[in-house]
Amino acid sequence: MRTRIPAIILLWLIIDIYFFKAIQTLGLNQNIGLFYWLFDALLTGAIVISAFARSRRFISWLMALMLLSFVPKLVGSVILLLEDITRLFRGFPPRSYAVSEFVMMIAFAFFGILLFGITRGRHYYKVRRETLFFDNLPEKFDGFTITQLSDIHSGSFSDAKGVQKGLDLVNAQQSDVILFTGDLVNNQASEMDPWIPAFSKLKAPYGKYSVLGNHDYGDYIQWESKHDQQANLKRLKEVHGEIGFKLLLNEHTPIRKENEAISLIGVENWGKGGFHKYGDLDKATAEVPDEGFKILMSHDPSHWDAVTLGHRHPIHLTLSGHTHGAQFGFELFGFKWSPIKYIYKQWAGLYEKSGLYLYVNRGFGFLGLKGRIGMWPEIAVITLKRK
């Protein structure tokens, strides 16, 4: 992060200078220009100090302020650039007052969207539904419903009413089973302590199951000893039980309905690049019937392409999370975009290859940025149907 700060500040400065031309064109009061530059100078200084001091307490709020300042100007600057391209072919006449007015209106509109995401977006839960059809789904499971949660990140929560709103929405789906695909906490098991009573009230007639995510191992903070980190992980596993979830650690369990069953498989976190690869799909599927219908919970969606699709056991449905949809992006008319797409090939929603499906949950909670902008917190409901 610290190595990227000079490039980020340089880009920010270029956009600031360019957008300021719209303010100059409108002939606004000089005090507005003074405030414009003073605010950005103070914010830039605070970000640099917090990054080098590693102050996690303030950096997330500073990130939010940076987005509020940068993104509206970036969008407005794109319009100014288009105007300048036309001016190039017209002998560079003075800037249009009307275009600058339009730029300011667009910038204020984006500012409002960002402000909503930062202040209200973290608990603006969306229920997303998918119906999937399979040839080999057992007859008794035709119409079986799954509610998937992911990336709770309880260490980021501060609004009990907001969290309870989401939990009530989960129970309102009345799904047959609830599956949680990892990252219960940010780093420490104790982060979940205040939320155990609320999460323990989640209900599903065929059970609640979970796996671990990359943040659950406590790998991102310094511990006094390896023993302390191991004790934290042990406690976190106990917390899963206290909220009524059966934690699957490279293992499987059958879900039975009358005289038929499907196999639910859960692996520990397996991530590409520098992420630990604790997950062991071979171990988890060692005793799974070859011909049976299989659902896999695997926190990181990169596991699907790298391991799952080529595995000797065809996994009919994989459920993942991890990406959060970057907590920033947009989805309109079937088109979705987020900067996370340049890192993860599968990053939000449903994907299919040769009749095998992956669903990537956008996450229930939030981390880093204290909000969600366009990529709203998600409760996924998947209905299984026989073809």
Rank of each mutant, 00 (worst) to 15 (best):
F70C: 05
F111K: 12
S298L: 06
F293K: 03
R386P: 07
K237R: 07
L184M: 08
T285M: 07
Q230W: 10
W195C: 06
D183S: 01
E191I: 04
G241D: 09
V239I: 15
S298D: 09
Q229S: 02
G374T: 08
G241F: 11
T308E: 11
M1H: 14
D135T: 14
A46P: 12
L249G: 04
L319F: 07
L68I: 14
A46N: 09
F157K: 03
L212W: 10
N136T: 13
N269T: 02
A98T: 13
N214I: 03
A107C: 08
G207H: 00
L81H: 06
G33E: 03
L68V: 14
F89I: 11
L384Q: 13
Q148F: 03
K226V: 04
E260P: 01
V78K: 01
L13H: 14
T383M: 12
T308Q: 09
T318L: 04
L132S: 06
Y18S: 13
R57T: 07
A286I: 11
R2F: 13
T383R: 13
E258N: 15
L74M: 12
A380D: 09
S200R: 00
K161F: 15
K165Y: 03
L358T: 05
L179P: 00
F52N: 14
A284S: 04
L88Y: 04
